[in-house]
């Protein structure tokens, strides 16, 4: 097999894996949009906030330490403990649920029946508020996130492909973990929405708010539920991306990687978020591999959007989105 084909295979594999990482972020958008019709601009910041909180808990960092020290003249920084990763993850998930309740109570509740653009604007405000809150709570310095996930080349895969093709293909262990986690996440969400009472209520609200209200489903509860789930999905995305780059404020920009995935996969489909992620990841990496050297490289950021745009032209609702038919 020629080197070019082997390299293309490696790029394809890694593109698919990168796509899974994009899908993890896109899932949070889909969940909220599906249940409430809100395009949650704050989803990337939720991932950042969750990762900051996780590292803060793990390292025993005192939240708002700088503020407390400035007001009271104290010198607090750390509680002196180091929590196991599992405990820190559970505590962070609890914080994300609490945050969902606060968002519902102080933002969404006041905007019921408002136009989607107003709700979108509210999430922009929320994004900047959360970014500032995260800064004041945990500081803007870069933090190492270590929850014990493996990183680096998968040597077994490299050895097997080397013996078969004479060239060891590279796959990152973290990407393999992300793929397994994404599969489990989708499976859990599917089981939850198909086989639990609350899952069915969530689907009912997604189908028709008014009808769901008329049969006694609490819209407020559903919003808290869906923002909580989106918060926990953001935590998962934050862990995966934060393990790669450390936890710092550009983590919120991973949302930009999710947008073409949503355009392609549709805003209302969980499988769409996964398949969209895979297509975008693979497409952008292959384009960079073949066309990058000819046009100066760094094509991925814009090519993902071109790819999504192409799909949009032929299928505006996205690959798996629901077709909107309005009868006059």
């Amino acid at each position: 097999m020629s080197d070019q084909i082997l390299f293309a295979m490696e790029v394809t594999l890694n593109g698919l894996m990168a796509g899974v990482m994009y899908s993890l972020v896109a899932l949070g958008f889909v969940l909220i949009f599906k249940a409430s019709g809100i395009f949650n601009y704050a989803q990337g910041v939720l991932a950042l906030f969750a990762a900051l909180t996780l590292v803060g808990f793990q390292n025993g960092q005192v939240p708002f330490a700088h503020l407390i020290n400035a007001i009271f003249g104290t010198n607090l920084h750390h509680f002196g403990w180091h929590l196991p990763a599992v405990v820190a993850i559970i505590l962070t998930a609890a914080v994300m649920v609490l945050l969902a309740m606060i968002v519902e109570k102080f933002v969404l509740q006041h905007l019921v029946n408002q136009a989607p653009i107003i709700l979108f604007m509210a999430t922009i405000g929320l994004a900047y508020f959360l970014e500032g809150l995260g800064d004041i709570m945990w500081g803007a310095d870069i933090k190492k996130l270590d929850v014990g996930l493996p990183q680096g080349a998968n040597e077994a895969f490299e050895a097997v492909t080397d013996s078969v093709f004479g060239f060891g293909l590279y796959i990152d262990n973290l990407d393999i973990v992300a793929t397994v986690v994404a599969a489990l996440l989708v499976l859990s969400l599917t089981l939850f929405s198909q086989y639990t009472k609350y899952g069915r209520a969530l689907r009912a609200v997604a189908d028709d708010h008014q009808a769901a209200l008329s049969v006694g489903i609490s819209l407020r509860f559903i919003w808290v539920l869906v923002w909580s789930i989106a918060g926990i999905v953001a935590l998962v995305a934050g862990i995966m991306w934060g393990s790669k780059s450390g936890v710092q404020f550009s983590l919120s920009l991973i949302a930009l990687k999710a947008l073409p995935v949503l355009m392609l996969g549709g805003f209302t489909s969980i499988p769409g978020a996964i398949v969209g992620g895979l297509i975008i990841g693979m497409g952008e990496k292959l384009f960079e591999f073949f066309a990058g050297p000819l046009i100066g490289g760094a094509t991925e950021n814009w090519f993902a959007y071109v790819l999504a745009l192409l799909f949009l032209v032929f299928r505006p609702q996205g690959l798996f989105g629901e077709k909107i038919i309005e009868r006059v």
């Binding site: 390299f7 990168a18 990152d172 991306w241 550009s250 983590l251 990496k285 960079e288 490289g297």
Partner: peptide, 8 residues
């Protein structure tokens, strides 16, 4: 944030 292509 994402540099997989470059390092491959």
């Amino acid at each position: 944030q994402e540099q997989k292509s470059q390092w491959l």
